[in-house]
C-alpha cells in the first residue's frame, strides 16, 4: 500500500544485506549508522535483521523465512520497518496495515512468537535482533503475513453484535438514558478493535476450530451487559454451545495480549457464569413460568 511517512527510516543504511532485492531499487546508500541496538536512548538507531515469513500461494507449497536488513531509528515501528522493506527491497512482501495508530486493527503479527500490533511495537525494543515476523498464529495463511479472517467474520455475525429490543422494552424517543455506571458495565468490552491478537494467543482457537473465540464472545457479552439491550436470551443458545463459550479453558492469554485492555478472558468467564445461572433458572422455573 502506501509508503509510510511515520518515522520513515530513510536516513538509514544501504538497502540489501544478505538478501536479493527483487525489482525496485533501494535508497541511496549512506554511511551505515552505528549498531548499538539495545541502548534505545533518544538518538538510538542502527540496522536490524527482520526474518519475515513468506508464503506465496502461486509459488510455494510451504512458508519460509526471508531475511531483510533494515535501518531503524528510535521512532521506527515494526510496521515502518515492513513498509520500508516493501518500498525499497521487496515490493511483493504482503501485509495488512492502515491507520498507524493502533485503532484500525489491521497490522497484527507474531513478533518473535508473540502476537503484537506492528504499528505500536518499536524496532528499538527488539534490537539488536534478529526480529522474527510471522502471520498471526491459529489462522490459515493466505499469503505472507495476511491471514484468513473469514472464520472470525462468521463468528462475529453469529453472536448478534447489535442492540436487540423486545416488545416489553420499547425504545424511548429520542434516545435512552444511560448513566456512567451503566456504561462502565460494558464499556471495557466495547473497546475491541478486532485485531485478532487474542485469537493468535488462544491455544483453544487452534485446537477447537469451531470455537467462537475471545473477541466474538466478548462482543456478545458487551451487548448482554448494555442496559439498552434485551437480546441475552437470543444470544444464549449461541454461547451455550459446543463451539460457544465452552471450548475456553481459561488459559487467560487473550487478556494478556489485548492491546486495548479489553480482557476477553473475563468476558468469557462471566458468560459461563451467566449461562450456568440461566440453566439453574430454567431448572427452577421453566420458560420463566410463561408456560410455553
Amino acid at each position: 500500500m502506501t509508503e509510510s511517512s511515520h518515522g520513515h527510516p530513510g536516513a538509514g543504511a544501504s538497502a540489501a544485506d544478505g538478501v536479493q532485492p527483487v525489482g525496485a531499487t533501494a535508497e541511496q546508500p549512506e554511511p551505515r549508522p552505528r549498531r548499538d541496538g539495545a541502548a534505545a536512548g533518544p538518538e538510538a538507531g542502527g540496522t536490524i535483521t527482520l526474518q519475515v515469513l513468506r508464503y506465496r500461494p502461486d509459488r510455494e507449497d510451504a512458508p519460509y523465512l526471508q531475511d531483510f536488513e533494515v535501518p531503524w531509528r528510535t521512532e521506527t515501528s515494526v510496521l515502518d520497518a515492513l513498509t520500508w522493506v516493501k518500498d525499497n527491497l521487496e515490493p511483493s512482501l504482503t501485509f495488512r496495515w492502515s491507520c498507524r495508530m493502533a485503532i484500525c486493527g489491521s497490522c497484527g503479527f507474531m513478533l518473535n512468537g508473540e502476537p503484537k500490533l506492528g504499528c505500536e511495537s518499536f524496532v528499538r525494543d527488539y534490537a539488536p535482533g534478529p526480529l522474527r515476523i510471522e502471520p498471526l498464529a491459529n489462522h490459515a495463511v493466505e499469503r505472507d503475513l495476511v491471514v484468513d479472517l473469514e472464520p472470525f467474520m462468521a463468528s462475529l455475525r453469529a453472536v448478534q453484535p447489535y442492540v436487540i429490543s423486545d416488545d416489553r422494552h420499547p425504545v424511548p424517543e429520542p434516545g435512552n438514558r444511560q448513566t456512567p455506571e451503566q456504561m462502565v458495565a460494558y464499556g471495557q468490552y466495547s473497546q475491541c478493535i478486532n485485531c485478532m491478537l487474542c485469537y493468535a494467543a488462544c491455544p483453544q482457537v487452534g485446537l477447537a476450530t469451531d470455537f467462537l473465540g475471545p473477541a466474538a464472545v466478548t462482543l456478545a457479552v458487551r451487548y448482554n451487559k448494555d442496559s439498552r439491550d434485551h437480546g441475552a436470551d437470543s444470544r444464549l443458545p449461541i454461547l451455550d454451545n459446543e463451539g460457544g463459550i465452552w471450548p475456553c479453558t481459561f488459559v487467560g492469554a487473550c487478556s494478556t495480549v489485548c492491546p486495548k485492555g479489553v480482557d476477553p478472558a473475563a468476558a468469557i468467564q462471566q458468560a459461563k457464569g451467566a449461562t450456568a445461572q440461566a440453566w439453574a433458572a430454567e431448572f427452577i422455573l421453566p420458560h420463566r413460568g410463561e408456560g410455553r
Binding site: A137, A140, V141, T256
Partner: peptide, 22 residues
Amino acid sequence: RRPYRPTTKRTWFLANREYRAY
C-alpha cells in the same frame, strides 16, 4: 486461494511461560 494451514503442535503448552503456567 491456496491457504497454508499451520497445525498446532502437541507440545503447544510448553511454548511460552503463560502456557506452561496454565
